[in-house]
Design a protein around this nucleic acid. Sequence first.
DNA 1: AATACTGTACCGCCCGGTCGGCACCGTCCG
DNA 2: CGGACGGTGCCGACCGGGCGGTACAGTATT
Lengths: 205, 205
Amino acid sequence: MADKPKARGRPSSREAMLDAAQAVVLEGGAGKLTLDAVARRAGVSKGGVMYNFPTKEALLKAMVERLVEHNRHAHAQVTASLPDRPGRSLKAYVMNSVRALDVDDRVSGALLAALNSDRALLAPVAEYFNGRFARLAQDVPFEQAALVYLATEGLWTQELLQLSPFNARQRAQLVRMLLRMAEPGAVTAGKAAAQGKTVRKKGKS
Amino acid sequence: MADKPKARGRPSSREAMLDAAQAVVLEGGAGKLTLDAVARRAGVSKGGVMYNFPTKEALLKAMVERLVEHNRHAHAQVTASLPDRPGRSLKAYVMNSVRALDVDDRVSGALLAALNSDRALLAPVAEYFNGRFARLAQDVPFEQAALVYLATEGLWTQELLQLSPFNARQRAQLVRMLLRMAEPGAVTAGKAAAQGKTVRKKGKS
DNA sequence: AATACTGTACCGCCCGGTCGGCACCGTCCG
DNA sequence: CGGACGGTGCCGACCGGGCGGTACAGTATT
């Protein structure tokens, strides 16, 4: 059920439709995510969409799965690009979260809306989130990991919903702070202690 | 326009309907927020709802306004109950956010979904958020305020969407941490340093 | 009897989902 | 070598239900 057993030569249609669905969500929010809209956007007919996704829920599910997979992949990628020290995964998480608030993220945010009314669909996402934090906290004290994790999540959410009270400069400053706080030793036994002087000119290590 | 010019003797009807609307959202998510559902829940007819709220958008708007107002009031209340030291407002914010994840909050979360597709409705909320942080950061260094603010917001969001990887014990621990970090002096010049010895720290698994 | 609402039948629209059809393509048989 | 055949991938008209919104008759309170 995850994929059609006979996706012989044509996985591209599905992908195109998922792209279209994302575009629709991006432009009009989750409320505008209509089978007709997706079809129109993908340049196919509604029947075509229904052929690939027997139900709208299937479409939603596929979208969520793809987003989670993308996210997982991106995080792995960023992690791999960092030196293997404690807090590496946590740092990668921060970097990945603020990477650009790109398309995937904005779609995720909008989708969360839809999913919120649909606990069943949300479950796999919750599972992913859960496992994610467990990995982040592997090589870092719990409170440090949690603090950075929560603050990052908060920042991400706020930016996403455009509720953020920060300007670009402040946001950059906060991201630097979070990255410092992901360093090993930045938090000890219930104390969070972000290393580094405040706004260093642009000195960056 | 905030209230009907002829809300002579009956503001209670409106309130009852708003309560009903909240209940509906709570039970079935924002997607189930239907005029008929609200009417049924409030024990009135659909016409009754339409009489008080000429359009569904008006209903949404009223809900949002009431929630914001409640939140504002609750925060003021908690603030007043704290000694007047720096960080008081910030601390109140943390306390208020984790107060109980009560009805208001859960409704807010669900509504955010609906609002996400409706940027116009979201604007006043954004404004409120904005002003809120400004006040929180008044008597506390920026990075400290922002850190506590974001982490709290992250925690709130995660709990709300039931995506939180934390159990009750961990959550309580984190709340204590956040409260300590809202204390004056807990963060200095780019360093966050939550005071206090953690009772346990039981190592990590 | 007027005011201030309530109850309900109804409308039009939109959306998810169905269904019969069709074009294309490889295969098999004469 | 070609034409009938089946099946895969897609089309698009259609349906039923649910929704927001309207119209209007009813009712209680003053």
